[in-house]
Design a protein around this nucleic acid. Structure first.
Lengths: 148, 148
DNA sequence: CTTTACTGACTACAAGTGTAATCTTAATTT
DNA sequence: AAATTAAGATTACACTTGTAGTCAGTAAAG
């Protein structure tokens, strides 16, 4: 099956490559390399390696076009972002996620529309939000307050 | 200097160890190992290795207590969470961060108080929020719409 | 005092990652 | 046709990470 494989694990450096391909929708290696050489001080072979790994991982597809390849993203940017973020949060203490989000929101510059959307979604959650979310760092439930 | 070293890079597996020590405030290896063996199917030596790496990285401090060590976190949990999350977001396209946050918020269970706090902070941002946040995936500014 | 058991140290090892050089083949230029 | 260039493939290599075995020393038990 695997209708939508969001599974591919993309490393930090590879993420940079994906970002330009996502933005361009599709690109040949010459273009990718030119753009990334400007952003980082990466050598061309470094970028080639990253592209190759992304193809092997299934994150980029290739279409032979004459002598070269055209690379196309095989995973959606937004889906990858959502998954990465959620994965990160889910490995942290549940009790502190809310505070982390608040701190992060304070540090980010979000558009007016995004802030508005967030508020709307949060207000909808208010009704059903639990009074508290317990710490889930220990196997049994010490409620985050069992002293050693 | 280095008054507050939030720099230490903590891997996924190491994060699990930190979570129990953060929650217990301090612990000896016996306790850490007992708890983690219950959560994962890790062998004791695996956990010992992780503890050792965290000590080397400066994320845990040791206090000799008789034959054993007492391990104490050297970085704050909330600060580490904030930094990890912000770091993750900052390596993603600025234009899509807001949407990612919305999606993530929809998937998380946050406490009533946390949701309320988030709303408050977001409402404060509304006033100064820019109309839009441009894509920053390309070196020059193609506004996320330059076709290949 | 000797044996046992547990703690921490050392060693191991494959996979992933960041970074890059070199090689090969095919195309472009002279 | 020969020489140069460029694209992708192959190879390299150190460091991190996940996972774990083994060893050594000291304290506890007999």
């Amino acid at each position: 099956m695997a209708t939508t494989e969001v599974t591919a694990t993309i490393s930090d450096a590879e993420w940079r490559v994906m970002r330009v391909v996502w933005t361009l929708k599709q690109a040949d290696s010459r273009t990718i390399i030119a753009l990334l050489e400007k952003q980082h001080d990466w050598k061309a072979p470094t970028i080639k390696t990253l592209i190759g790994r992304l193809v092997k991982k299934g994150a980029l597809a290739t279409t032979k076009q004459g002598r070269q390849f055209i690379y196309t993203p095989q995973i959606q940017e937004q889906a990858a972002m959502d998954a990465a973020l959620l994965g990160e949060l889910n490995q942290m203490c549940a009790m502190h996620r809310g505070t982390a989000l608040t701190h992060v929101v304070d540090q980010l510059e979000l558009s007016h529309a995004d802030v508005q959307t967030l508020i709307t979604h949060l207000e909808q959650q208010l009704a059903t939000a639990p009074a508290s979310v317990p710490c889930d760092c220990l196997p049994d439930d010490c409620e985050g307050s069992c002293e050693a």
